Simulated scan of single mutants.
Amino acid sequence: MRIVSGMRPTGKLHLGHYLGVLQNWIRLQNDNDCHFFVADWHALSTSYEDKLNLRLLGKELVKDWIAAGIDPHKTTLFVQSAVKEHAELYVLLNMITPLGWLERNPTYKDQLAQMQHKEIHTAGFLTYPVLQAADIILYQADLVPIGEDQKPHLEITREIVRRFHHLFGCEVFKEPKELLTETARLPGLDGRKMSKSYNNAIFLSDTPDEVWAKLKVAKTDTQRVRRNDPGNPDVCLVFEYHKALSDDTVVERVNEECRAGTIGCFDCKKLCAQSIDRLLEPMHERRTQLDDAAVDAVIEAGNAAAKEEAAATMERANQAVFEISCNV
């Protein structure tokens, strides 16, 4: 199956990104035709004022993907802005997408409320779902891996496809289906959403010393005062990390010993740090073996492959719009 997904290059990746996205991508790449892209134009929809070096951040993002286990021999890795057909199709789709569809999008309303500290009342932010639709249908995606909260965006994509076909009488695009993925939602070290802006994240690039420095001050069961007091792992943030990252034997041990008061929070955190280090160590090793020239070659090859496919789709789309013809 053709699978298309992207990630915005807004900074270093953390454990939440790995569990929420990359772990799934790694699994999907083995049995599917996967296209994963650096969504640098999407980054501008909310971060246009941040003066980000998107070219450098995009390259670092691809490095992190490969270090995490994404295989460039199995997948097509490319940069959105390097394939101008994304912008071309975005323009065409904007011409036919009713404004009400975008304004009623629940994700749009939620993000406006959550990001009041930023000026995002822009055309680019409002039409974010249209660019997303272009990203997906340009490559004739069968499936798009998303969480439950992203379903409205994908439904807009399908509605745009149906409207295009109705208006121009040509079946140019596939209607993509959602691939709903259950992902471990790892909270930040302060209990809020894990984010670099909250300074509560463990990054994939963190060394063992950095992991421990962050983890040792993480919240635990506030009702547990002394080491041998019985604890409640169900209200402990560190136990959430154990469940997501530790072996089953460690999880079971921590669960039993915490409730019995036979393991202290310090030792529990040490075990958690070891689990995180075991996950990150091979990533660090793979990243040290990646030189800039090799990563550039991966991106250039992916850009070329993506552009060839995108150009073929745009030829059909333009013929449908400007010639009212389906013969390609």
Rank of each mutant, 00 (worst) to 15 (best):
M1W: 12
V4P: 00
K12V: 06
Y18P: 05
L22K: 05
Q23G: 13
W25G: 04
W25H: 08
R27H: 12
L28Y: 05
L28G: 03
L28F: 09
Q29D: 07
Q29N: 05
Q29F: 06
N32D: 10
H35G: 12
F36P: 00
F37L: 08
V38T: 04
D40Q: 06
W41K: 14
A43R: 04
T46L: 12
E49T: 14
E49P: 11
L54V: 01
R55P: 01
L57F: 07
V62E: 10
D64P: 03
G69E: 02
I70W: 08
I70G: 07
H73P: 09
T75F: 09
V79K: 04
Q80A: 07
V83R: 02
V83C: 09
E85P: 00
N94V: 04
M95R: 13
M95E: 10
T97R: 05
P98T: 08
G100V: 12
R104K: 12
R104W: 02
N105D: 10
P106Q: 03
T107D: 02
Q111A: 12
A113W: 04
Q116S: 13
K118C: 07
G124E: 08
Y128M: 09
Y128N: 08
P129S: 02
A133L: 01
A133C: 08
L138D: 03
L138G: 00
Y139C: 03
Y139R: 04
Q140C: 05
L143V: 07
V144G: 00
I146D: 01
Q150H: 04
K151M: 08
K151P: 00
H153T: 00
I156W: 00
I156N: 00
T157P: 00
T157L: 00
R162M: 00
R163A: 02
F164G: 03
L167E: 05
E171Y: 13
V172S: 01
E175M: 04
L180D: 04
L180I: 04
A184E: 15
P187I: 11
G188S: 04
G191L: 12
K193M: 06
M194N: 00
S197F: 07
F203S: 04
F203M: 03
S205Q: 12
S205H: 11
D206K: 03
W212Q: 03
K214M: 02
L215E: 04
L215F: 09
A218F: 06
V225W: 11
R226H: 15
R226L: 15
R227V: 15
N228P: 15
N232W: 10
E240C: 12
S246I: 05
D247S: 13
D247Q: 10
N255Y: 15
C265S: 09
F266T: 15
F266I: 15
D267G: 13
C268F: 03
C268R: 03
C268T: 06
K270S: 11
Q274M: 09
S275N: 02
D277W: 07
L280R: 01
E281K: 12
H284C: 08
E285F: 12
T288S: 15
Q289S: 12
D292M: 01
A294C: 10
D296G: 03
E300N: 13
E300V: 07
A301W: 13
G302K: 02
A304P: 06
A306L: 08
A306K: 02
K307C: 12
E308Q: 14
A317T: 05
N318M: 15
N318V: 13
Q319P: 07
F322L: 06
F322N: 12
F322D: 05
E323S: 15
S325K: 11
C326A: 10
